[in-house]
Design a protein around this nucleic acid. Structure first.
Lengths: 337, 337
DNA sequence: CTTGGCACTCAGGAACACAGAGTGCTAGAT
DNA sequence: ATCTAGCACTCTGTGTTCCTGAGTGCCAAG
């Protein structure tokens, strides 16, 4: 049904439309891409493509525009990821290398990606689940309060102020800290709950109330942070592009962690490290936007996802190239630290 | 020059224009606000007000619109801050009370303010300068690396991974930690540099290289964080309002810490706890927007600033009320912890 | 299967008229 | 001295009409 030339026409339509933002007509097509056939022939092919639902015309007697289905075919079969230039790669590398801590890595990554793609970038914080406890710190604030600080091997720090059920002096706090660290250091976060379950029983009876309180907060911290924080950057890039779904909706989604979570999450499939593209109506919310995402993290265990959100009419090859490259570099940086 | 009735007319114009977003004419004015004079009289007053530069007409034979100068007079002399309703106050209180740590307080505050005012809210993180060291923690990661964690009395945690110039074993790290804490605990952050200056000399010679490295990172941390982080929320509220200065500019400014810093910073005056309003062209960048800001923090020492950014045409009394109320509650929460 | 020709459609722009809101001014009323 | 009423004038915004040009679909010939 769709011979090679028809596919070539579809590819040409997508490319032209992406770059000009105007419906593309048969004549212009035949000229600009040397298809070696006449406009009339192109018209026939276009009619076929429209029949199949790959393209559509906004109104009679205007050029054609790709449909979501058309973009899908383009992404899957007609395009290949465009690698970044050497200069861009160097820029990424040096920019990310300057990061001082995990927060900084994430912030830099998201900005970088936004700038590179000229769209909205979204980065999910590395999940705790796969990471391990590096250190647990208890800092006495006064006799009834301590601050719990949990440090993971990914460089992440979680903190909570805890009200104790009774006064506890510093030496006992120090003791608790030693016990906690002895049993938790180096453990995967997902193992913490079971390791901690019978711990109060193994302690002197006078330490149990305090320990129980602290441990319950510790567990709470793990659970809460299980669904993770997401940051974005490049909202200014939305100003230019005109979204079919209102600009307002997009901005709202960006500020709503839960929605963003879903959007990124839904892009996961069997191989998390692969590039995923969701086009327009394939997205649960935000029908008018496309998302290009991928997992990142050190090789085997994927820590989280990052990606780009933009109008359906985006330059997929370039965007995919940028996302993939950035994901690789971040993974590298994180693995090194 | 400006008698009471002219001021009343100006006030009426501002109020009407803010609520309708349309230039307001003499007839509508005379009717809606019972001024007890005829439209013709109002017209005379309007002519006078225009002469003085408080209002202007977009084109001949359209109604009048307040100028920046007009809003200024309105804010300074013709309006009074509108207190929140009891329900709103309760909502603020319960929402903020649920915060678990400093990050959470800031995040909740900024969202709350955005929702309350239906505009873009901006909150600066409490500055470290006035806060004191609660604890310094050194966590050995491996023999050549330690993680420095600085905990302040405001609940803020700063962290850095440090590469040591030479291998240092855990007991010496523990010793350094003890020394640091002994000399820094409870000190104001601004005093840290001098306290730390001669510290290496007081240490055993073999600890000096490591100590010097760590301390230099510590100082760096203080300096870097001196100009503070700013977060925003409610960007979606920009979608409705039409800004004279492009939407893009505003979004860019929001993501650019430095610019945001300036905008908030420039609003400071002698009494930081007072509400400050900068209207339109009074702003260094972003001429088309107004900013309502105030300091927050426990009474005497102001920790940082927060505020709202919106179109010049905003409801100042309501916005000011919300900003003031939120600032008060946050200060309260922070003082309590 | 491709191509040239031709009639048809429709969005977008230009030209135009017109109603309505609003103003400024002047002369009379209070 | 100030307010008011009346009136002529000036715009913007809207609706109408017309026209052009890009683009299509279809048909018949190569």
């Amino acid at each position: 049904m769709l011979d090679d030339r028809k596919l070539a026409v579809l590819r040409a339509i997508v490319e032209d439309y992406v770059s000009t933002n105007e419906p593309v007509g048969s004549k212009a097509l035949a000229e600009r891409h040397n298809l070696k056939v006449s406009p009339a022939t192109v018209r026939n092919d276009m009619a076929a493509l429209e029949e199949e639902g790959y393209i559509t015309q906004p109104h009679t007697s205007a050029g054609r525009v790709p449909t979501d289905k058309g973009y899908r075919l383009f992404v899957d079969r007609l395009s290949q990821v465009k690698p970044l230039s050497a200069a861009e790669r160097r820029a990424i590398e040096t920019f990310l290398a300057g990061a001082v801590d995990l927060d900084d890595v994430v912030t830099r990554t998201v900005r970088l990606l936004a700038q590179l793609t000229r769209q909205v970038a979204v980065v999910q914080y590395p999940t705790l689940t796969r990471s391990t406890v590096r250190h647990v710190e208890l800092v006495p604030l006064n006799e009834r309060r301590v601050m719990l600080v949990l440090i993971t091997n990914t460089g992440r720090v979680e903190q909570r102020v805890i009200e104790l059920p009774e006064a506890v002096d510093d030496t006992r706090i120090a003791h608790l800290r030693a016990v906690f660290n002895a049993s938790l250091d180096g453990c995967g976060l997902s193992n913490v709950p079971e390791l901690v379950a019978d711990m109060p029983e193994r302690l002197p009876v006078e330490d149990r109330p305090a320990a129980a309180t602290i441990l319950s907060v510790l567990l709470e911290t793990l659970v809460e942070r299980h669904d993770e924080k997401i940051v974005f950057a490049g909202a200014a890039n939305l100003a230019g592009a005109d979204f079919t779904t209102g600009l307002r909706d997009v901005l709202e989604a960006l500020e709503e962690q839960v929605v963003l979570m879903r959007l990124l999450g839904e892009t996961t499939n069997d191989t998390p490290s692969a590039l995923t593209v969701r086009i327009g109506s394939e997205n649960p919310y935000l029908r008018g936007t496309s998302i290009v995402a991928t997992g990142y993290g050190s090789g085997d265990n994927q820590l989280a996802r990052l990606g780009v959100l933009g109008p359906t009419r985006m330059d997929y090859p370039v965007t995919m190239g940028a996302v993939r490259a950035v994901a690789r570099y971040v993974s590298q940086i994180l693995a090194a630290s």
